[in-house]
Design a protein around this nucleic acid. Structure first.
Lengths: 213, 213
DNA sequence: GCCGCGGGTGAGCGGGCGCTTAGCCTGCCC
DNA sequence: GGGCAGGCTAAGCGCCCGCTCACCCGCGGC
């Protein structure tokens, strides 16, 4: 949560933590391939080829193809939790925190669509124990958003009859951006983030100031 | 648009139009398998096995595995368009028509989750020309919802600064139900439909009557 | 200068894939 | 009751998958 480009939703950055260099190149290649064609339709030969290596090189750094998906999924979900947690813990009204959470989460799903797609849609290609680990991270995402909504209701800022259901809807709206967002489409990640923050504030009955940002 | 169970969102019905019987059994088996494991992870042997037939039987009724997906996808999308069109053309205020569209569309995605999942998420396993055909149906869905929003804005019922963007968000919200809805979870399709209709009316700034249904 | 060792390769194994083919069984027309 | 068309199966073709193994290469330590 330190570099600027992550919060800006850049496709580029967040694999800096993966070492050595060859392992990172393989992982980035896998993200692209999984996002384009899906986990099961991607071959280990394809991944290795995109990374400029022979098929066997993959198995020096990863035990199986599934381990690659697991690593991608965990790092991605940690990033997601981080984005929401950061937004939830900034100072300001519940309204401001919710707007920040939605707009930054949407920016991540739109700008890092390749990664987000793998993270959100290839989850059940994982084995049971890996999936369980990821689902725990997902529950943390839910808890962060629900926390903001509860705060806002308590403070009288929001009017939300069904907090768990609305939490689900807010997250669902953000996550689905990764499905339809098109880099060559008419909207930038920032614009979608702003639009969605506005729509979500309407959903929870928050008072909105005039467009300030 | 004629039988009750479709609008009720039943998992059961809508393949009645597929004949002969063996072809329908294969298609239903394929829907289940594709929904559970994805198109690429599903084998023709698995589909045939679920239908109680030998692997070769599939090729009497369908030319390829992809043709099965294409048929499922087209029938499913036609149903989706039908649901939205029916809601858009009922009598009543734009508010009522939007609520009906959202709640019935959500009921279909929740109750027919198996079908909806295949229809919404396996689209890009199709070849280019099949995908193009399906995308045309998808644009019809978009047009139906956008039409309701435009009517509501014109009638002064809605306050929507960005009609295309809001259309996208409304459809996205409904479609994503197929991803997270759990038949054994705490909510029925009807409940999710009602919740989402309420949330969407808030999003468009519509006046809502007290809970009537 | 030689050795070892971590990162890399080419070739290939066992197996399961989508799909085909040759032939069988059943019911219907005459 | 013979012929035959269509629904179905057993067997299997050719291919490519995930993954492995035997070997190679460049570089730091002594």
């Amino acid at each position: 949560m330190s570099t600027a480009e992550e919060i800006a939703g850049g496709e580029a950055a967040p694999w800096g933590e993966v070492t050595p260099d060859a392992a990172r190149r393989l992982l980035v290649a896998a993200v692209e391939a999984f996002a384009e064609r899906g986990y099961h339709a991607t071959t280990t030969r394809d991944i290795a080829g995109r990374a400029g290596m022979s098929p066997a090189a993959l198995y020096i750094h990863y035990k199986t193809k599934e381990e690659l998906l697991h690593r991608i999924s965990r790092i991605g979900h940690e990033k997601a939790v981080d984005i929401l947690r950061t937004a939830a813990r900034t100072e300001g009204t519940s309204t401001e925190r919710l707007a920040e959470a939605v707009s930054s989460f949407v920016r991540w799903h739109a700008g890092g669509r390749t990664t987000a797609r793998v993270v959100q849609y290839e989850l059940d290609s994982l084995g049971p124990e890996a999936r369980a680990e990821i689902l725990a991270l997902r529950r943390q995402c839910d808890a962060e958003v629900r926390g903001i909504l509860e705060d806002g209701v308590e403070a009288g800022e929001f009017d939300v009859p069904d907090v768990p259901g609305t939490t689900l809807a807010v997250l669902s709206l953000c996550v689905d951006v990764a499905r339809w967002f098109n880099v060559n489409g008419p909207r930038t990640p920032d614009e979608v983030g702003a639009l969605y923050a506005d729509l979500v504030l309407r959903m929870v009955g928050a008072e909105q100031k005039a467009a300030d940002a």
